[in-house]
């Protein structure tokens, strides 16, 4: 089943039910800038040259772009650094203003490591093997000794079978976990608690936490959604969530609102979020969200909704776009 068919589902479903098909992208661009600063755009690429005021990158299409670094801009590369201190050659994701010309925040070589712990080896630097779900395979990450204490405080069950979620750096082909992205759920990955009892009557908006993952295609704007029918997706782990989500399909349009920044966008469901559904955690980015991950966004969508990659989540509401 190819992408054209999945994208067409939205048009066909809208025609059959007599509703508007909806358009992916930010909602009401004029209003979405209520947090200040107008619409955001995510730009990614490899640094060719950087100075305190200017960054030159090569985008994934191979185009060189010159962007102005705002005076208030900050950068992250394993820790907060000055933008000019970023190494040439690193892959950056940037939050930009003014049609993608002015850089406000830079994340360099940032990766997110989410999965179920398979094995842990090592004495000082730990090597952790993770199962990242049926679509993403296995991944091996290194936890340097200096970060292991900080990670284990938020991951008290540091043993096989439990979930792991951290943010780190991608360096020389290997991933280093540096910061915990959440408080580890206390249950084993295969024992997700049931959603709270739901009563008849459709909820218009569902609240929870929205996270990001770097396992999407480059420049893809989309989300992985946990509540998909197992028979439609061929994913035996789908359809699990503790947030009381409605069933949707690949190709459905989700309206996601970042409660913290006030921005909202229509994001298509492009992947099965079977791993996100296993996390029954909260986001405390701007308030305490209800439990459960409602969407796992691609980095582009996440940044354009005003999320900070290093914080790992934002409080979100979803509706059907």
């Amino acid at each position: 089943m190819g992408y054209p068919i999945i994208e067409r589902r939205r048009v066909l479903a809208a025609a059959a039910l007599g509703r508007e098909p909806g358009v992916p992208g930010p909602d009401n661009p004029q209003e979405s800038g209520e947090a200040g600063g107008g619409p955001l755009r995510a730009v990614a690429g490899e640094i060719l040259d950087i100075s305190p005021h200017l960054i030159i990158i090569e985008t994934p299409e191979g185009v060189q772009e010159r962007l102005v670094i705002a005076p208030w801009a900050t950068a992250w590369h394993g820790g907060d650094v000055a933008p000019a201190g970023l190494p040439v050659g690193s892959m950056v994701m940037m939050r930009t203003l003014r049609e993608g010309r002015v850089v406000e925040r830079i994340w360099a070589d940032t990766t997110r490591i989410t999965g179920t712990i398979q094995s842990i080896d090592g004495r000082k630097d730990l090597t952790v093997e993770l199962d990242c779900g049926p679509h993403r395979g296995h991944r091996t990450v290194v936890i340097p000794y200096r970060a292991s204490g900080r990670l284990q405080v938020r991951h008290p069950k540091f043993e096989p079978g439990y979930l792991f979620d951290a943010i780190g750096l991608r360096q020389e082909g290997a991933s280093q976990a540096l910061l915990p992205a959440t408080s580890q759920p206390p249950y084993p990955a295969r024992a997700v608690p049931p959603p709270p009892p739901a009563y008849a009557g459709v909820q218009q908006r569902i609240a929870g936490t929205a996270t990001w993952s770097d396992t999407f295609d480059e420049e893809e704007r989309g989300a992985a959604y946990p509540m998909l029918e197992r028979s439609d997706t061929g994913c035996a782990d789908a359809g699990v969530s503790c947030a009381g989500l409605p069933y949707l399909a690949l190709g459905s349009l989700l309206q996601i609102r970042n409660v913290c920044s006030g921005r909202s966008a229509n994001v298509p469901v492009v992947a099965c979020g079977c791993l996100a559904g296993r996390f029954c955690d909260r986001c405390v980015e701007c308030d305490t969200s209800p439990r459960g991950r409602i969407a796992e966004l691609s980095p582009y969508s996440y940044v354009e909704l005003g999320g900070d990659l290093v914080k790992g989540c934002f409080n979100a509401q979803i509706g059907l776009g």
């Binding site: 089943m1 068919i5 589902r9 066909l12 479903a13 059959a16 039910l17 029918e229 439609d232 409605p246 069933y247 949707l248 399909a249 690949l250 190709g251 459905s252 059907l320």
Partner: peptide, 10 residues
């Protein structure tokens, strides 16, 4: 093609 969205199957 067949898919389910909310309470409908298409």
């Amino acid at each position: 093609d067949s898919w389910r969205e909310l309470c409908w199957r298409f």
